[in-house]
Amino acid sequence: MKNAKLISFLLFIMLLVGWEAIAKTMSELVLPAPSVIFMTLYEGMLDGYFLPHIIRTLSEVLLGLILGSLFGFIVGILMGEITFLRKLLFPYVIASQAVPKLALAPLFILWFGFGMTSKVVITALICFFPLLENTVTAIQFTDRQKIELFRVLDATRFQTLIRLEIPAGLPSIMAGFRVAVVMSVVGAVVGEFIGGSEGLGAMIIASQGMMDTPLMFAILTLLTVIGMGLYQLVLLIEKKLLKRYTKEKLL
């Protein structure tokens, strides 16, 4: 494990060194060097230029993630538990996901305006499906023998759901949540691309208009850090939940 992390870090350093060497032979407009990007990022953070945009994008990401994931989890439980509801709604859910969100973004801007609401709705819609799909799968494929045991013990349907189906399906549900976390950043940025004057997505469009490639790369770096940070936070939460569930099983 330690060797793998060390090799990964060394690979990262090698990529940066190679990038720096290649960038020196090219125009900054085409490919800025990592050192130039770092200075742009450092100066922007130092003078507070990036901060309002980071807060705006992070707010959209978190609100959309919470709403979309919560709705996906609840609907996923209902569809997993009720076969009729699953057969009724699943084709419409698939159809809604088949439409590219970039194509829907202008409509949401038209319906909800240029403010934060439209970006949150886009982000929530993107986060909705991974949680729904994984929750339905987790509920459907719960061990039948364990469910029969709960029935023998006169457990109610709700008790079986809370005590067995959700805990047993936790790895699958959390896997969906990890996907939703990564996609939430994409959703917020897509919304800001289409109609936004604030946020990191809007800054990318502005930097493109100014032909400021180092600024664009600096913003992309910030988005990467935000996405990776949220992903690691979810991994930590997942680890604690699974550890707690394992302890409860042993008891």
Rank of each mutant, 00 (worst) to 15 (best):
D143I: 00
I94M: 02
L89I: 08
Q208T: 14
A218L: 04
L164W: 06
L233K: 08
L236F: 09
A218N: 01
L88H: 07
T123Q: 00
V30Q: 12
L10S: 06
G191L: 03
F50N: 06
K5C: 00
S69C: 14
I219Y: 00
T40L: 08
L251E: 12
D154F: 09
S69G: 10
T213A: 15
A218M: 03
I66T: 10
N3E: 14
L220C: 09
E148M: 06
G72C: 09
A95W: 13
G44D: 04
N3G: 00
T213G: 11
K247S: 14
M39F: 13
K243T: 15
G196F: 01
M211Y: 15
T123S: 04
L233Q: 11
M211E: 15
V61S: 02
L110G: 07
F112S: 04
Y231G: 03
G76Y: 00
P171T: 07
K5Y: 13
F84W: 07
I166S: 04
I109Y: 08
I194F: 06
G201N: 05
I147L: 14
I126R: 05
L222Q: 05
K5P: 06
N3Y: 15
Q97G: 07
M116D: 04
G187E: 09
C127F: 04
V75F: 05
Q159F: 15
L102R: 06
F114N: 00
E20G: 05
T137P: 02
M39S: 13
A33Y: 08
P130E: 08
F12Y: 07
G68M: 03
V189W: 02
L220W: 00
F193E: 08
E165I: 01
A175S: 10
F193A: 09
M183A: 13
F158E: 06
S197Y: 12
V189K: 12
F193G: 07
E28L: 09
V136N: 06
K240Y: 14
K146R: 13
I37P: 01
M203H: 05
I66L: 12
L65W: 01
I147P: 14
T135A: 02
T40C: 10
I194Y: 06
P214W: 08
T137C: 11
K240C: 10
F177L: 12
S184E: 09
I22C: 04
I194M: 12
P167E: 03
L132C: 07
L235V: 14
K247D: 11
E28F: 08
I173W: 04
L29V: 11
S8N: 12
S8A: 11
T117C: 00
L153F: 09
L170S: 12
